[in-house]
Nucleic acid binder design. Sequence first.
DNA 1: AGTCGCCTGGTA
DNA 2: TACCAGGCGACT
Length: 272
Amino acid sequence: MPELPEVETIRLTILPKLKGRRIISGEVLHEKMVLGISVKEFLERVSGQKITGMERRGKYLLIELAADLIIGLHLRMTGQLTVEKSDSPLAKAIYFRLSLDNGTELRFRDQRKFGKVFLYSRGEPPLALEKIGPEPLSPEFTVAVLKERFGQRSLAVKKALLNQEIIAGIGNIYADESLFYAGIHPARSVNSLTGAEIDGLYHAIQKVLSEGIKLGGTTFRDYRDGEGRAGSYQNKLNVYGQKGKTCPNCGGLIVKMNFGGRGTHFCPLCQK
DNA sequence: AGTCGCCTGGTA
DNA sequence: TACCAGGCGACT
C-alpha cells in the first residue's frame, strides 16, 4: 500500500506520540510478521526501552530506541499504524501492539498480513535495508545520481523506478504519475532515455513525491495516516486508476496495461 | 528476467 | 466466481 509519501505522512503523524515514551510491553498476534528472532525474544528486547525518535528510509519506518536498538517496520500493501489509548476498542486485524508508558499503545493493523517487523542494532541493518537506493527527496539525489543509478541497463524505466535498490520509496502509483509528467512511456529502456528525458523524470519524481507528502498521501482504499485520516493526493492523479478517462494534457484516453506483473497506467499519446 | 507466494476483501 | 490490489522476496 503505502509508498514514500504515505510512509512519510505516517511518520510525521506518529513521531510526536512516540518520542520520549517508554515501551512497557507488547503483543504479536501474527508470529510470521516478526523477522529473524522469536516473538518472545523480540518483546523481551524492546520492553522497557525508551523511544528516542522515528526515521524513514524508503518505505521503511525505523523506531529508534535507547541503546542504539532500532525497530524496523514495513507496511507492505495494507499496513496501518496508529497510536491510541490502550483502553480504546481494538479494530479488526491488529496483529502487533506496543504498550507505552502514558496509557497509549502503538497499533499495527494489517488486513493482508504482509507487513513485517524486525529489530536490529544501529549500524547493523538487515541486507534489504542496507541495499536500498538514494532518497529521492534528499539533497544528495541529483540528476547525475539518477543517471548513474540507471546506468546502461536495458531495463524498462517503470521497472527501474519500482526497484528499491535503484531509488528508494517509489511504488506503483508514483511511478506511473512520474512517467506521465515526464512524458515517458513506461516500457522505454533506461539506456534509451536522453539527458533531457532523465532531467524531466528527475523533476517529475520530486514533484509527485513532494506533492504527495503535502497532500497527506493517496488513499485508494486502505491507506490512513497515524490519525486514521485519508490522504487527498488521489484527487490529483492523472493516470493511476484513471483507465478510460481523458488525459488532462491531450484529451486522449488513459490506458492500463499489465507490465512486469503490475498494473501500469499511461497516456499513449503523451508518453513516448 | 519472469513468475509465484504470501493473505484478505472488494468489485466486475 | 474470478480477478485485482500502494510490496517484496524466493523461486526457476
